[in-house]
């Protein structure tokens, strides 16, 4: 497995939406390299025959009946918003469209 480098961290920081200074990238790359090295044995521990466990206690078919519950007023919904306008959350311009 390739070691994690500064460019990797820059890419990951972009994916994670965390702006990082050049120094921060360097420091983080160093720290992560150590951590990644420490956890790499994991990929060799389990063979192909071992199933993955994503829930510690297996449950299935947990559903909710389709019945209306509580709602917020717009005021409650927006009570913690950094910015709002006309009962909606206000955000700066979006460049990337999706």
């Amino acid at each position: 497995m390739a070691a994690i480098n500064r460019d990797d961290v820059a890419h990951l920081a972009r994916l994670a939406h965390i702006e990082m200074s050049a120094e921060e990238l360097d420091r983080m790359a160093g720290e992560l390299a150590v951590i990644v090295d420490a956890v790499k044995s994991v990929s060799e521990a389990a063979g192909d025959g071992v199933p993955a466990t994503s829930h510690p206690i297996p449950l299935s078919n947990v559903f909710r009946e389709d019945e209306v519950g509580h709602t917020f007023t717009a005021e409650q919904a927006l009570s913690g918003a950094p910015d709002s306008d006309a009962d909606r959350f206000k955000v700066p311009a979006i460049l990337d469209e999706d």
Partner: peptide, 8 residues
């Protein structure tokens, strides 16, 4: 792999 280790 980590999820497999979980099984182990």
């Amino acid at each position: 792999s980590a999820q497999k280790v979980r099984t182990l």
